[in-house]
Amino acid sequence: MTDRTSGHRPDQAELEELASLLPFPAERDLPPGRHLHHKETLMNLIDKETDEAPAHQPATPRPHVPRFRRPALLLPAAGLALTTALLTTLTLTNQNATTSPPSAKSPSTDTRTGARTGTGTAPHDATLLLDRIATVAAKTAQRPVTASQFVYVRTLQTGNEGKFGGPLKLTKAAEREVWMSQKPGAVTDVGLIHEDGAYWPITVGVPDGEAPVGYPAGLNRPTYAWLASLPTAPDALLDRLSKEITRDQDARDTPTADRNRDQDAFDTIGELLRETVMPPRTAAALYQAAAKIPGVTEDPDAKDAAGRHGIGVARDNTRTGERTAWIFDPTTLAYLGERTYLTRDTTLGKKGALLHVSAVLERGVVNALREQPPTKTT
């Protein structure tokens, strides 16, 4: 380190090195996605206790509830008898069947994208990586989706089971297909889910048998047209998402003390990437906006639920002890999936244990429910 009395002023590289040694600021949030994650853990516990009921006592029939992270008020038609406390949220938790932490590799750089594919050092800021991803996304060909069509996404993911509060027990990976309606305005028939060998309509439901009023396009039902309406300037986009998130959290009566703007923005962008087809300009803007979120770093070697290794864009939630990484192909920078694992020992498991992992196998646009795209794209 340079002596202060030498008259030498540290250059930018030295300043960045010093900054990288500082710890990230503590966070105080428990974002909406994790609230839903813990609710599903409770739901799984209830299901397990029902399944293990004594033979002399007939088990109460339970509805099948597909795991769906968003929207908050969407329910399959077969699941309307679920307890009122759980009627307001459905969760999609994507976990892998292994609990080993991400491996560390020697640093290397992809000659095509310049993305770091492995390192044994501290995580680096992801700004340059996100800029490259945004450039690729902006050049991706995508025909507009009409209001009469459906967005189709096929994923591979696992769930979790165990006692409420942990530790978690990961289940075997399984495929899931979803068809999402693109109709404008408030709709009650939002789409269809195919998983566990059955089809489950996604309809708007409310507790106590009240008449459904429909669900509008928006953060909880991100149609192609709604995504296209978002600002493409990163700062304006973050501001718009912040307002949408605040409105959503107010509707859920989320305490102000449990909110963190930066973590919420990262989680929300991640949710928008999972099961949508979006305009290239919107995708690029989301990645550019993510680059402006403090604490977003590279996760140099992340593996999705299909076993594909990629480079991750990650953020640590220091309040919950979790790191979530969006995974991208190290050569093409195409989105592969997402994973979340523990960065410290918690009641959910040991440090390095996976909490969820997913892989996008196919995206497309179709004209009818249960229809599959003619060609497979990822």
Rank of each mutant, 00 (worst) to 15 (best):
T84S: 14
S242W: 12
R4P: 10
Y335G: 07
L45A: 15
Q57F: 06
G185K: 13
A251K: 07
A173V: 12
A198Y: 07
L90D: 02
S108Y: 02
A325V: 02
A186Q: 13
T276L: 01
S100W: 09
A59P: 12
G352R: 06
R28I: 04
T88C: 09
A217K: 11
A217L: 11
L238V: 03
T158M: 05
A137R: 02
A302M: 06
I133A: 11
R261M: 10
A13T: 12
A72R: 13
A198F: 14
L192Y: 12
R247M: 09
S20N: 15
D304T: 03
P54M: 03
R308L: 08
A186I: 06
W179S: 05
T297H: 02
R176S: 09
L30C: 07
A225I: 00
L238F: 10
Y215R: 11
S242A: 15
T5Q: 14
T318L: 15
L45M: 15
R143P: 06
R274D: 04
A291R: 08
D125C: 09
T377F: 03
P71A: 03
T256F: 13
N260A: 11
A134Y: 05
Y287N: 04
D196N: 13
L348A: 04
A302F: 03
T83V: 01
L361N: 05
T378Y: 08
L87E: 07
V360I: 05
A251F: 06
L92V: 03
R9W: 06
R116T: 13
A228P: 06
E14K: 15
S6D: 15
G166F: 04
L241T: 11
L156C: 02
R339E: 11
A126R: 07
R176H: 12
A305D: 09
R69K: 00
L86D: 03
R28A: 08
A126L: 09
G307D: 01
E195Q: 09
S108Q: 06
I327S: 00
D262W: 08
